[in-house]
């Protein structure tokens, strides 16, 4: 793991339509780090990561990306926001990850086909690739969305509430998959969650947003007091 910063936020204010939600945010993420963006619903987690992804512009301050180039993001959205009316197969959803580099009027290359197969294999969904995405279970859809993010060949993988709304067994499997992918691909990970029990113990950094304040630390510094006080804690830490 190198120590280069891949994202640095300097005095950043975030919000919508000029209305600030969080002010004076300062932190950096290092290449290869696993960072968790944690906080209760409505605290501004999603706004912060959408600002990092350049989906929403910051109201104030600057965000510096890497040394030389804007990193490529692999984005795993909350699966509930994707409309089931689209008749995509699981494989077609993963192919979307290659659309950023695809040239118009050109059919999908053999290289991209092989890469998509590999991504499906990595998340254990190769056998279900011809199933309709809308017919898959919550956990299976999440795996497909992770495969789609991997298919972008990302520098940074961003996961928005990856275990929300899936059963406990599927939650465990998804977290194991994320852990495995982090180790295998050595990617920088940013995971957004409001569920404390989903946070792996071994992560490098937690950015905890609460009461319009942004706290930064590691899992021992920030999670231990929470666990002791049993604040919004209903599960056990993943080991």
């Amino acid at each position: 793991m190198t120590t280069d910063n891949c994202i640095t936020l300097k005095d950043v204010t975030i919000g919508y339509n000029g209305h600030p939600l969080l002010k004076d945010i300062n932190f950096s993420l290092k290449v290869g780090e696993f960072t968790v963006l944690f906080g209760p619903n409505g605290c501004g987690k999603t706004t912060l990561f959408k600002t990092i992804l350049r989906i929403i512009p910051p109201i104030q301050g600057t965000i510096v990306y890497g040394e030389n180039h804007y990193p490529r993001f692999g984005y795993v959205p909350q699966r509930q926001i994707l409309d089931e009316i689209y008749p995509f197969t699981a494989e077609e959803v993963v192919f979307m990850g290659t659309f950023g580099q695809a040239k118009p009027f050109c059919p999908t290359s053999d290289k991209n086909r092989a890469w998509v197969e590999q991504c499906l294999k990595d998340v254990g969904m190769l056998e279900l690739k011809k199933q309709l995405f809308s017919e898959l279970s919550g956990g299976q859809r999440q795996r497909i969305l992770i495969a789609r993010a991997l298919a972008t060949r990302p520098d940074i993988l961003v996961l928005d509430e990856p275990i929300t709304g899936v059963d406990i067994l599927a939650q465990k499997m998804i977290m194991e998959l994320i852990t495995l992918l982090h180790k295998k691909h050595q990617l920088t990970f940013i995971m957004v969650t409001h569920e404390i029990h989903s946070i792996p113990k071994w992560i490098d950094k937690i950015i905890w947003i609460n009461d319009n304040k942004v706290l930064i630390g590691n899992s021992i510094e920030l999670l231990s007091p929470l666990i002791t006080d049993e604040i919004s804690f209903q599960g056990t830490l993943w080991h």
């Binding site: 992804l53 994707l82 972008t152 961003v158």
Partner: peptide
């Protein structure tokens, strides 16, 4: 299908 993904 996915505006946020398209932006990223």
């Amino acid at each position: 299908y996915d505006i946020d993904m398209a932006v990223t």
